[in-house]
């Protein structure tokens, strides 16, 4: 598919028609991967020799943390698309992704707290990673609140996309500032392609399955929410037209 064909989906009608066909597949694939990954991870992997069975929370913690950041990245990309090409679906997709991203951030924080309690002996520490996620959560909160506060759809899309761009820069700055401010307890990245000291293969494959499951779940939720946003927008446009005729 060429890049030009991609812009076709910027048409709300085309988007609805396409997602009508795609959405069930994505949703079922997400369910399948999640169930498979979680069952595999929870029941068919050994306990870690140091962490015991608490290690199994990794199957929720790592994928949700990944998606918390990727959701913001997706919002950044769709915001840029709105600013540059002014496709309404793009702005609405950013709006649709924000609450999903916020919930992912919350899940990452909550599972992290549950994991931290037995491991570090505390629910919360002002560790750079934890703190950054808390700040990311605040950014999501502000972004969503701004969308809700503004009546005119196009103005809201403009303002939130610029907030998303500026927020991204400041979120990145905060990440480094927080790193500088406190060296933490959190282990380094457990997944990377170039390093040898990754998690062992037994944990790695079910983890990959749950990550794929979370990605698919995110895509399914965002598609579903974008469809809702498009329909809500259409409803507002129809109501406005009604008022004009009256």
């Amino acid at each position: 598919m060429s890049l030009n064909a991609l812009w076709e989906f910027a048409n709300p009608r085309k988007f609805i028609a396409t997602t009508d066909r795609v959405l069930p597949w994505v949703a079922w694939a997400a369910a399948l991967m999640l169930v498979a990954g979680l069952v595999w991870g929870f029941f068919f992997t050994p306990d870690d020799f140091r962490q015991g069975s608490t290690v199994k929370i990794i199957y929720l913690h790592v994928p949700s943390a990944l998606m918390a950041i990727n959701a913001w990245l997706m919002m950044l990309v769709t915001s840029l698309v709105w600013i540059v090409r002014r496709h309404h679906v793009s702005a609405l997709a950013a709006r649709a992704a924000a609450p999903v991203g916020m919930v992912m951030t919350l899940v990452a924080l909550a599972t992290g707290a549950l994991w931290g309690q037995p491991m570090w002996g505390t629910w919360w520490a002002w560790d750079p990673r934890l703190t950054s996620f808390l700040i990311l959560f605040l950014f999501y909160l502000g972004y969503i609140a701004l969308w809700e506060a503004i009546e005119n759809d196009d103005t809201a899309a403009d303002l939130t996309s610029i907030l998303c761009l500026v927020g991204s820069v400041f979120a990145l700055l905060s990440r480094y500032a927080v790193n500088f401010w406190n060296q933490g307890l959190h282990q380094g990245a457990s997944l990377s392609l170039d390093k040898q000291e990754n998690v062992a293969d037994v944990f790695w494959y079910p983890l990959l399955a749950t990550i794929a499951g979370f990605v698919l779940l995110f895509v399914a939720l965002v598609l579903m929410r974008t469809r809702t946003e498009i329909r809500a927008r259409r409803m507002r446009a129809l109501l406005a037209r009604e008022r004009m005729q009256a």
Binding site: H88, I230, R241
Partner: peptide, 13 residues
């Protein structure tokens, strides 16, 4: 004309 649907909300109507 209120029924003109070629405005920029057109795709939503």
């Amino acid at each position: 004309a209120p029924l003109a649907a070629d405005d920029f909300d057109g795709a939503f109507l």
